[in-house]
Amino acid sequence: MAVATPGLFRRFARNRAALLGLIILIAVIALALAAPTLYPRNPLRIVGPAELWPLQDPRFPLGTDSIGRNIAAIIAHGARATLLIGLFASLTATLIGVTIGATAAWFGGWVDELLMRLTEMFQVVPGLVFVLTIVSILGGTVQNITIAVGVVSWTGIARLTRAEFLTLRDREFVQACRAMGMPDWRIVLAEVLPNALPPVIVLSSLAVASAILFESAVSFLGLGDPQVASWGRLVGEGRTLIRSSWYISAVPGVAIMLMVLALNLIGDGLNDALNPKLRNR
């Protein structure tokens, strides 16, 4: 049973801003996919003179950084890391959050108490501090960052899933399923979950944006993987030259900003499209 219903895209596309967000996202995905073709060599290799401003040399449309690396190549390859980390961190967070929220609401009682206290424990630790701690202990590989970001972002999703499950649990159709002898796991997975997912999907799309910001922050602080091109890292490296060659920080900064904005617009659009109350407006 798919969450998508007929006309979902049409309702989504009615929101112009959301459509713009989707176009930006598709452009970034295209850039990430094309990166190996456009810049087949390692993007972190020195290819020209340092601090070449954008549009100064047609070979380097976005200029070069402090040691002469091609910023356009870093942006293109960085898009891959950014998208992968955003996507998988959000998936991790959604998986953990939905499991914990659904379990807490479905079983209630002490299970609910325990899981909600656990959720609160994660909520009171500042996310970035938590991520930095994990990354500095386990090392700054892309996988570690992904998992660390996922582990700090699930709490909101868990709370939302729990709330949705609590209202759905007492609906008569759930009782009808019980009355026909359907096992609990099937009721949860096939009946309740698809009804609970739409608002969770919205939150997950926003979690992608926050994961990208986390990754940028980690890389900005120089704790990311030095072998991987990353937008955040470039912002960090450019900050010493911010007075003379501000474009080195600004170009990846704008990229991050556009990406996060696009994801937020998409999240809003999904919210409108998936909200049945707004459906007939």
């Binding site: 049973m1 969450v3 219903t5 609906r171 008569e172 159709f173 009782q175 009808a176 009946e191 698809p194 009804n195 049945p276």
Partner: peptide, 8 residues
Amino acid sequence: VSSLNPRR
């Protein structure tokens, strides 16, 4: 309304 799963 609530006795029928709206997604089936």
